[in-house]
Simulated assay, not measured.
Amino acid sequence: MLQNFEDIQKVGKDNLELAVKSFGTVSKGVQSIAVEVADYSKKSFEEGTAAAEKLFGAKTLDKAVEIQSDYFKSAYESFVAQATKMGELYADLAKETYKPYESVLAKVAVTK
């Protein structure tokens, strides 16, 4: 009976350690994502403001259309790059969150 109790305690302790490790990983990952979103938002706002200033200073309609087209092209490319980067950050977060559980799942698979 005592050995079963010790086994239960060990499993509980191991699970708690895994949960704490996983929480730490998630916390770091979410923080990285938040920083990346804030940086992108700031950069995007600055670029939009600069484009608006150029647009208001345009002397001809052709120049205004050129400024607007350049801005839209740049904004689209920046968005696609950022979306790719965010996808990678989320994928890395999922992988890192899963890592602590790999050994436990491997043990479960072996015992079955």
Rank of each mutant, 00 (worst) to 15 (best):
V11S: 11
A64T: 03
T60E: 02
S74W: 00
E47K: 05
V110C: 13
E17N: 11
K21I: 02
K59C: 05
I33H: 01
F79Q: 14
K28S: 08
T84M: 14
K99C: 02
N15T: 08
I8D: 12
F45P: 07
K59I: 05
L55D: 03
Q31T: 15
G57P: 00
Y71D: 08
V11F: 11
K99E: 08
A51P: 04
V37W: 01
D14N: 10
E53P: 00
A19I: 14
T60K: 03
E66I: 01
M86P: 04
K85M: 10
V108Q: 12
K85C: 09
A19Q: 08
G29K: 01
T84V: 13
V26Q: 04
T97I: 07
G24P: 03
Q3T: 14
Y76K: 15
D92R: 02
Y71V: 06
Q9H: 13
S27A: 13
I33G: 08
K43F: 06
T84I: 13
E53W: 01
V80Y: 06
K73Y: 04
I33K: 03
Y101P: 02
S78M: 06
Y101R: 02
L105M: 14
S27E: 10
S103Q: 14
E102D: 15
K59W: 01
T97M: 06
G57I: 00
V110Y: 09
K10D: 11
V20S: 10
A51N: 04
A64V: 04
A106R: 12
S78D: 11
E17Y: 05
V37G: 06
Q31H: 11
K28D: 02
E53G: 03
K54N: 13
E96S: 08
K42H: 08
G48A: 07
E77V: 04
N4F: 07
Q31E: 14
I8N: 08
K28A: 12
N4V: 09
L55S: 09
K73S: 14
S74C: 06
A58H: 00
S44I: 05
K63D: 15
V65S: 05
Y98M: 10
D92Y: 00
N4P: 01
A75V: 07
T49S: 12
K10T: 11
L105N: 15
E47Y: 03
D92V: 00
A75I: 04
V11T: 14
G29W: 01
L93D: 00
Y98N: 12
F5M: 13
G29H: 00
D62P: 02
A51Q: 03
Q31W: 07
E53K: 13
K42P: 06
S22G: 05
V104L: 15
E102T: 06
S22T: 09
S41Q: 10
L55G: 09
A19D: 06
A50S: 10
V30Q: 06
T84Y: 05
Q68N: 11
A19K: 04
D39L: 10
L2V: 11
T84W: 03
L18H: 04
D62W: 05
A81L: 10
T49Y: 12
S27G: 05
N4G: 07
G87W: 01
F45D: 15
Y98F: 11
S32W: 01
K63W: 03
E53N: 10
S41K: 03
L16K: 07
S22R: 01
V30M: 07
Y101F: 15
A50M: 05
S103E: 15
K13T: 13
V65Y: 04
